[in-house]
Computed example of a mutant assay.
Amino acid sequence: MICRNKPEAYLQLLMTIARDELGIESFDATGEAGEEFRMCRVEDIGRALERAYDMGLMVGHTVTRAECAQGQRA
């Protein structure tokens, strides 16, 4: 059985990565016509993506271990 967390659970983590790595304070568009453009260094984008990927691996590993432990108890 695969358990899926609500996407909202990850928004705080993604916001933290965006704030730390890219200087983005909100995912809400605040510019004219609801659009905002921001210049980001490629290095910063790469670091943010790597950090998000690493966090995804950790969450996946944690969920898999919990499911295996639960399966062993059953």
Rank of each mutant, 00 (worst) to 15 (best):
M1E: 05
I2P: 02
I2W: 06
C3P: 00
C3G: 05
N5P: 02
N5L: 15
P7E: 05
P7R: 06
A9Y: 14
A9T: 13
Y10K: 14
Y10D: 10
Y10T: 09
Y10M: 11
L13G: 00
L13V: 13
L14G: 02
M15L: 14
T16V: 06
T16M: 07
I17N: 03
I17G: 00
A18C: 10
D20Q: 14
D20P: 00
L22W: 10
I24G: 02
E25H: 12
E25Y: 11
F27E: 01
F27V: 03
D28M: 09
D28I: 06
D28H: 06
A29C: 01
A29S: 08
G31W: 02
E32V: 08
E32W: 05
E32G: 00
A33F: 11
E35T: 13
E35V: 15
E35Q: 14
E35R: 15
E36M: 11
E36D: 10
F37S: 15
F37M: 14
R41H: 11
R41I: 01
R41S: 15
V42K: 13
V42R: 14
V42Q: 15
E43Q: 13
E43M: 04
E43L: 08
I45N: 01
G46E: 13
G46V: 09
G46L: 13
R47G: 01
L49V: 11
A52Y: 05
A52C: 04
Y53L: 10
D54Q: 08
D54H: 05
D54V: 03
M55L: 11
M55H: 10
G56I: 01
G56W: 04
G56K: 11
H61P: 00
T62F: 10
V63M: 12
T64D: 10
A66I: 09
E67V: 00
C68N: 07
A69Q: 09
A69E: 15
A69V: 06
Q72L: 08
R73F: 03
A74E: 04
A74M: 10
A74R: 05
